[in-house]
Design a protein around this nucleic acid. Structure first.
Lengths: 220, 220
DNA sequence: CGGCTTTATTTTGCATACAAAATACGATAT
DNA sequence: ATATCGTATTTTGTATGCAAAATAAAGCCG
């Protein structure tokens, strides 16, 4: 018996991942039409698995389907962000509340470590690294809740907001605020204080909302 | 120009709806394997749209996919319910908080009307009608939040929990508690008290959790 | 020259066909 | 009788083909 079986993911799954990546990276911009034949050629697959992948991403909300008119990358509107962020606040708050109770000392130490890295990136004004460590902290906390459905739900919403691409627009002021909130997050986590962590995470998303909607106002 | 164009939904959408219904109604039981050819015959469509529909439901979580082994109706476990209900509590709470602020007097009156119907169904022990009006109230409140993403998110989670089919197991006691909580819900809504409505809805889902997990314990 | 109709081309929607994997079945050997 | 191997059948995965709808283009008339 071979215990290290190589499981090749079905084509439609691979294609879906690839598409997700293309959308997330901006290679496929919001509103861009998805020409099936073109995509088939670039990916080297037939239309069947491609279409299955497109249907998946459509139910995820990353893509919009117009009958007989194909698919296009869905556009994240000002209104969408306004809808999503309060939901994320509630869910991240819940995640934090659960994490404060369930996370092991080792896990918390790990978050602390990433947190310190993030602070250093902040001080050095290393934007990309800052955002990556930031994202990782939130992921670790949410995962620390031990609620996989919660993790999935947040990720799904987060994927949509991420495409608003507000990061570049962050001001020095809002950045500083985010960092100080993160200090409170790690403190509440180490103190294993569910209510406090929940409150801070909700406030943190509110700060994020203000930042994002501020920049979106500029663009529109 | 014809302003009343008949828009026929794509087959894969119709098939997805049909499958959702079959799963929701129990015609397709949890764990049941989905034979593509059989389903194609019963629905009178080819495998292409059927498979597209299956992929959609899989990303929704209603169906599970095993590579080269087809799809089966996903089984909702004790653990899944334990994960989902706290999320629903947070989201329904948020929905209530927003609804208390945003709902018009007319809408609130409508909820009151359905509420009164529900009470009457409760008194007459009309279970099916009770559950339908119950569901409708929660739907109206959530929609009253004015946050469509929230409505969609809750519906998606709700669809999974619904399949646990706890309804028949409801005791007289838990039923009475649910009804009394509903009275508080309508009161908080009419008083336009966001915090109170949020708290009650969260408590209400907690009651639901206790009921469901109680019955699941019995079965397992 | 501009707007409208008609025709050609592209693109999507659905069905079918073929390939590969998994399952079911049966024969053989122990 | 049971286990195992090999074959047949079923089922899924992918590609292709055809029809319908939409878009683009050409021709026509004002």
């Amino acid at each position: 018996m071979n215990s290290s079986v190589i499981i090749r993911a079905p084509l439609h799954v691979q294609v879906a991942e690839r598409l997700r990546l293309m959308i997330d990276s901006g290679e496929l911009e919001p509103g861009a039409r998805l020409n099936e034949i073109d995509l088939c050629n670039t990916m080297g697959v037939s239309r069947t698995p491609l279409r299955e992948a497109i249907r998946s991403l459509a139910t995820e909300g990353l893509i919009e389907l117009q009958p007989n008119r194909g698919a296009s990358v869905s556009i994240i509107s000002h209104e969408d962000v306004s809808e999503i962020l309060p939901i994320m606040a509630a869910l991240e708050g819940l995640g934090g509340r659960l994490a404060a109770v369930h996370m092991t000392a080792e896990k918390i130490a790990q978050v602390r470590k990433v947190h310190d890295q993030m602070i250093s990136h902040y001080q050095n004004r290393e934007v990309a690294e800052y955002f990556e460590t930031n994202r990782l902290i939130h992921e670790l906390v949410t995962e620390g809740s031990g609620n996989q459905t919660l993790v999935d739900t947040i990720n799904s919403l987060s994927a949509k907001v991420r495409r608003a691409r507000f990061s570049a627009q962050m001001t020095e002021e809002s950045w500083a605020k985010a960092v100080s909130e993160h200090a409170e997050i790690i403190a509440a986590l180490e103190a294993k204080d569910p209510e406090r962590l929940e409150a801070i995470l909700i406030q943190h998303v509110e700060t994020k909302r203000a930042t994002i909607l501020g920049t979106l106002e500029d663009k529109n």
